[in-house]
């Protein structure tokens, strides 16, 4: 077997990560950086990073970056892309950012079919603020603000926002993946590649939802948290391509 560890061109060297041990954000970052290089778009890329654990993503991505107000990433990405259609623009957002406070921006940027790409990290909690309930929190899941477990009668059911936007004509590609296993990581990379290609081909909006462990706020060790993605999260959020209109749009 020919193993090699090639450092992605668009990932900064010699930086110490602020992400917790076992966090899925780091894996997602590396995948994005690799795809930017493989598709040769990093030089003209702008990433809009969120308020959330990835607020410091500019420490790692070696591309131009714009921090967003909580939830407003796709509105900012819209502004950049409309002003500079020649740039490659993507947002990177958590589930609180994208599907709670930023729901309107998410839905309407998708419905306008903005030529942007969205990387959506679903870790079923608010990571940065200390593990509160997110719209994606599973039924029964304990968080700091649903201490006896999410009760649908009281807190409602998990929100499947990617399924919602996948139904829009302007959304060319939507897929849900997970970084829970080596196979899942390979699939994630393929999904990000497909999504980014939609923008390169100028055919519309794409989104990849990545189920991602947050061992710290799930109060699990790393191995347990990856298992929990595989065994529990994927039951609520089944993996797969949610829409693929690429052939129709080309």
């Amino acid at each position: 077997m020919n193993l090699k560890n090639k450092w992605p061109k668009y990932y900064k060297k010699d930086v110490v990560t602020h992400y917790c041990p076992g966090c899925g954000h780091g894996i997602a970052h590396r995948i994005v950086a690799e795809v930017l290089e493989e598709l040769d778009v990093g030089d003209r890329a702008i990433c809009v990073n969120p308020a959330g654990c990835a607020v410091l993503a500019y420490r790692y991505f070696d591309i131009d970056m714009l921090e967003s107000a909580h939830g407003r990433g796709t509105a900012m990405a819209t502004g950049i892309k409309r002003a500079r259609p020649d740039l490659f623009v993507f947002s990177y957002q958590g589930d609180g950012d994208l599907s709670a406070i930023g729901t309107a921006e998410t839905i309407h940027s998708a419905n306008r079919g903005e030529h942007i790409s969205v990387i959506f990290i679903n870790n079923a909690v608010y990571g940065m603020t200390g593990g509160q309930m997110a719209p994606t929190t599973l039924v029964g899941q304990k968080t700091t603000t649903s201490p006896s477990g999410r009760n649908p009668d009281y807190e409602g059911y998990p929100l499947h926002i990617t399924d919602v936007v996948a139904s829009f004509p302007g959304v060319v590609y939507a897929e849900r993946v997970a970084v829970d296993t080596p196979a899942g990581i390979r699939k994630t990379k393929k999904a990000v590649t497909n999504a980014f290609r939609c923008q390169i081909d100028g055919i519309g909006y794409s989104i990849v939802e990545i189920l991602s462990p947050c061992p710290t706020n799930w109060k699990m060790n790393t191995i347990e948290s990856y298992k929990w993605v595989t065994e529990e999260m994927t039951k609520e959020f089944p993996l797969g391509v949610l829409t693929d209109k690429r052939e129709k749009k080309k």
Binding site: I46, A75, M76, G79, I80, A83
Partner: peptide
């Protein structure tokens, strides 16, 4: 926020 994006660009 669209203004922020376009201005940044």
């Amino acid at each position: 926020n669209m203004v922020v994006g376009a201005s940044a660009a």
